[in-house]
Every structure is written in C-alpha cells, then in structure tokens.
Design a binder for these strands. Sequence first.
RNA 1: GGCCCCAUCGUCUAACGGUUAGGACGCCAGAUUCUCAAUCUGGAAAUCCGGGUUCAAUUCCCGGUGGGGUCACCA
Length: 494
Amino acid sequence: MSSKNDKLANSRPSVESSPLEQGSTSRVVRTRFAPSPTGMLHIGGLRTTLFSWLWARKNGGEFILRLEDTDQERVVEGAREQIMDSIAWLGMNWDFGPDKPSPEFGSCVQSERKDDYIKFIQPLLDSGVAYHDWTSTDDLAAMREQAQAEKRPFVFRKSMATLEGPEGGSVIRIAIPDDLTISWDDAVRGTQEWSGKDIGDFVAIKSDGYPTYQFANVVDDHLMGITDVIRADEWLSSTPKHLYLFDQLGWQRPTYVHVPPILGPDGKKKLSKRDGAKNAADYAEEGYLPDAVINFLALLGWNPGTEQEVFTREQLIEAFDISKIQKSGARFDPVKLDWMNGMHIRALSAASRYEHSSEWWPEAATSYDDSYRQSVLELVHERLKKWSELPMLSSFFFEKPEPLGQDKIVKETKFMPEEQGQLISDTLKLLQDSDFSEEDLEKRLYGYAKDNDLKVGKYFMLIRLVVTGSTFSPGLFETLHVIGKDEVLARLAR
RNA sequence: GGCCCCAUCGUCUAACGGUUAGGACGCCAGAUUCUCAAUCUGGAAAUCCGGGUUCAAUUCCCGGUGGGGUCACCA
C-alpha cells in the first residue's frame, strides 16, 4: 500500500540531518517522563527521568511529569506520591505535572483527559484506519495460545476480528497495513525500519472507554508539544505504532530517544525488585546526597566525552548531550556510588556539609551545640561514604565509650596491663596542665614517647583506645583537642 | 519461534580505519602518617568468535555465539 504512508515516512528529516536537531530547531525543547502509578519508581526510571530533565534544562526547555493511569485497576495507592517525592528529592523540578496543570493543555493525569482521546479516534474511525472489534478476551487468549504453539508471532488482523456486537462493548483497534514501512532515526539507536506485517492491529480504546498506553501516549505527546520522547529501551518495538498514529493524525513526529536498560548485579536481566532495585527513598534513607545519586546515574549509559567523573548538577546540565547516550545496557555498581557520594560529601563547603548532616547525628549528639558538632564533622567527613555512617564514626565524641577490656588493649598495643596503667597515669599527669591545643598535645605526647623510648604508634594507639574505644579515629591530637580537656582527662582517669 | 536491539579491563566507559587500546570505580604495591580514611605515585587487568574489505580493523561488511527487548482491552 501505502504510498501515502511511505511519503509520510519519507517526509521526515533525512538520515543525514541530526536527530538532535529535529526537535530543537522548530520548537522549544519539551520532554516528559510518563510513569504509570503502579508501584515504586526504581533506579531505571529515575535515570530515564534524569535524562529527560537534563535535556530540557540544557536547552532551556520544559520538563513535564505526566501520569499514565489509564489502567485504573492497576493504579496503586500512594504510588503517585512516591513517584513525585522521588523525583523531587533528586531535585528534578517539573514545569507541569499532576500537581501543576498547564493552561495550554490542561491536566497531566491521563485519567483526567479521557475526552481528548475519544475526540481523536473519530477521524481515524471515519477514514477506516481504526475499527471496532468485539472479539472476547477469551477468544483472543486462545488465538494467542495457538500462535504460540505454532511458534509464530501473534499478529491480529481485521480479518480475525468480530465486527458486530452490542453498543459500547467493543474495543477500537488501529489497522496496520501489511505493506506498511515505518522508519525513523532514533537519537541513540540510529535508523530504524519496521515492516507492517510484524505489527498487529493494536487496541487504541479499551472496552471501558479508556485509551491504551499506545494511543494516549501519542495524543498526549502531541497535545503537550513534546519534542523529544526520552524513554526506556523496551519501547523501541512499539515505536512504529506510535509513529503510524502520528502520521495518520497528521501530526509532527517527535524525536525518539531510547535509552538502554540498567542491569542487575548479574549483568543480564534488567534491575528488578529481587535485586534490591531501589527507589529514591531508599537512597535518601541510607544517606546519599541527591547530587551524588544524580551524578552517578548520569554516568550510567552516558558519558561527557571527557575524563571528568565528578559533576555538580549545573555541570551535568551543561555537559549533557543525548548524542552521547550509550547503546548497551549498564550494570549498577553500588560500590562506585559509594565512592561518588564520598566525593560529593567532601566537595561540599563546611557549612553546607553541616547542614546536610543534620538528621544523621547519633542520639547523644543532641545535647551538644552546633559548633562542637561542626568541628566533629570536619574531623570525620573524610571517612564518610554516606551519612548513615556518621553515628558509627562520631559516637565517641559525644559519649564515653564502653570501657575496653585490658585483654583487648594488650592485643592491639602489646602493652601488658601493668604497663598500661603506668602509661595512662603518666599521660594523665602529662596533660594536666596542657592548654589542649593541637600543637601542645603534639609536643607533649611525642615528647613523652621519645623520653620513654616508646613506639609512637603503640603509645598513641593506647591513648586512642582508652579515649575513643575505637581502633581508628581521626588524628589523635585533633580528636583530643575537640573532645576537650575535661572529658579526655576524665576518660583517662577511668 | 518471528521481528528488533546490543557486545572494549571484574564494573562504568574513551578511542576521524593508523594509539604502547586512554580514564574512572574496585583490587594490589608504594609515598604520607599515630590508627582508619583522605590525598599522591605506580601496577595487574579488555577489544566475544570466524570470515571478508583494506597497505592497515576495536572501528566498516557478512556469519556465528552470547545477552536483552517485544509480540496484552499492562504500561
């Protein structure tokens, strides 16, 4: 057939023209993320959101959050809020969303836009592109099963349909011509071409009157003026359906950008709940910084073409380019995320680092003032990978540690119990009239070790163990200085 | 099974057809040092296989293998 369709397909920008320019030359860039509120938004969805958001921000365009809830039965309570909270936590602001309708196109919730879809199906029905079908779901299932058994793909055609039935009980399908050829330039996959004979006549309007994703998606992308459809790879094979609809409705096609999947630990299947696929809330709870998560996610399936790894949010927006999105799937590496988060914690100014730390302090820290806590933070932050580690690394600044058994000290320092007692009481005397500046502590402690011919490492470890209860801590003088004279002497005297 | 997509160190990735195949995480070693970190330096570590094109292939083509996606009144 259809020279008409071929022409439409061919009227698209040629292969030579960059797909990047298709969306951005004529119209202001508009992207959207369109999840269905059926559950948690996990890491893969978050990354897709990120790419959409970055691309809009980079181009001074708009980013829309649209809820695809046309399957009312699958809508999960709370999912909508969870999705919005996750995206907001990562600092990806939307220009229009479920909570922010547009004066131009209205609601961003599909169930509230039902009338729009019905409106556009009529011309398709009139032109014979769409038709009513009364085939029962049971019959459909049987047909599918048979196709399966015969090891052939299930491709529904009008000839298989039940064309008569009671008013209102039908679905509306889009008829796909066998000789249709649909081609397009995917911004990451390159030129794609599909044959109509591999595409079944798909349902556009369900028998309950709601549109399917396939239809609502196209209508909304058009009505909302979406220029770049950035979505997961799994949609690649339904793109021809969407394109056919754009063409038949006489609408301008957006640029399609199919991003690769994020893989689970085995490097094969997509990351799933079973792998502990997380949502943004989980990362918030473990004490990751939104900027670090964004930085990490951006580098999963995209790279700037330079050797830079650590980016601020602004640098990411500046550097991001959909032409550098990877084709193949990427594995999620939590170890690198930890490193990345540590880098971001260290990149913060002392003041904003302290601000970020606020809810992570151990219980005992509440009775201490800001300036004390801030000094502690500056001492321990280089050892932090995530905020949840703060209590473990800082507790001895706020409360006396559990006294260590002498055996433990012997094991760590090789000082016999008698020696321990002697050294500690000497140290107690030594520090009695110290001003407890780092310099003075250093002078006295080193001096004592030297005068008594002690291994500095062993001696310092002894003091550390007694004062902090831990085999590791920030530098000994800094630690003693911050804890303060009274408390240090009290701990030594125990 | 049909159709489609993908393939560089363990992982994330770079490389106009000509590079000692680069960087990062992790790992190992060293430096620093009172411990642990942080930091710096060095090291081990990769082009899935087979053909073809070419003076030259990680790069282009074909085939294989492996992995993934999709074939719903779900998105």
